[in-house]
Simulated scan of single mutants.
Amino acid sequence: MKLKVAYKSIIGKIRPKNEDNASFFYDQSNNILAIVADGIGGNRAGEVASKMAVDGIGKRFTNQQIQTVKHASKWFQNQIDFENQEILAISMHDQHLKGMGTTFVGFINTGRNYVICNIGDSRGYLFRNTELTQLTEDHSYVNELLKAGKISKQAAATYPYKNVIVRSLGISSNAEPTISDGRILIGDQFLLCSDGLTDLVSESVIKLVLQSNRSIAEKCEKLTEMANQNGGSDNITVLIIETRADQGVDNHG
């Protein structure tokens, strides 16, 4: 099985800078870790927090040999705890970085299995057999209302506080991610993205782009372009992992 990865991150039309970060890394067993992080906190703080999460967790992954789903899940939990404390410590000692934080969504493959971890409202999706399934849970105020049955899914799409998140790295000493796992099938596509995409491009449109004949690099380009054309009100980051019937791992989209 061959995994291919591509990503694209743009500033959008409104924000003064890009506080999103994304990248991918390999461990000693040639498994892939892919990450998208969306910084929060104003000034340059959000940018610093998201970069810390991507670079710090990514660098530590390169020294690992992830063997099982259980190992990957535990490793993700440990990394979230560690990076949360790192961000909190730096924000407390640097006035310019006070209050910084970041969302996080990460993907690890262990052979033919995957583990996906998120905290905040950056999302992970699986596109399989023409169906798009959200694998992550939004840790947002509006999703809490939705789960409690206090608003409808239609109302949630335009709710005035839809971007208020209730969990992230850097908010409190207790960071609780959502972690799930499953099998990888040939032809699967995994999409990681910041809310700059999902706020402005519907899941039905995302699905159409994913099922097109474009390369995954072209799909990333197209999705970020569409979100920008639809207003570009936030930074926009898209990362796609594609599986093919082949040997080895490839990182060219």
Rank of each mutant, 00 (worst) to 15 (best):
K153C: 00
I40G: 00
C193S: 12
S152F: 01
D81G: 03
N30G: 01
E137Q: 12
G39T: 07
Q211S: 13
Y141M: 12
N43Y: 14
F24W: 14
D246W: 01
T136P: 02
H96Y: 11
A49K: 08
G170S: 04
D195A: 07
K70A: 15
T237H: 10
K207I: 01
G149H: 02
G99D: 02
D188W: 01
E83L: 15
N30M: 10
E83D: 00
I14Q: 14
T110D: 03
Q229D: 08
L132E: 07
S202C: 02
S212R: 08
F25Q: 04
I87M: 10
G170T: 03
L197C: 09
G99E: 05
V209F: 06
N31T: 10
S194C: 09
F25A: 12
L185I: 09
G253E: 08
N143W: 08
Y7V: 04
K222V: 09
L192P: 01
P177Y: 08
S152P: 00
K222M: 14
A34K: 02
T103R: 06
S91N: 04
D234T: 05
I241W: 03
N213Q: 14
P16S: 07
F76Y: 03
C220D: 01
V249F: 05
V164G: 02
D138Y: 05
A148Y: 04
Q247M: 10
I32D: 07
G231N: 05
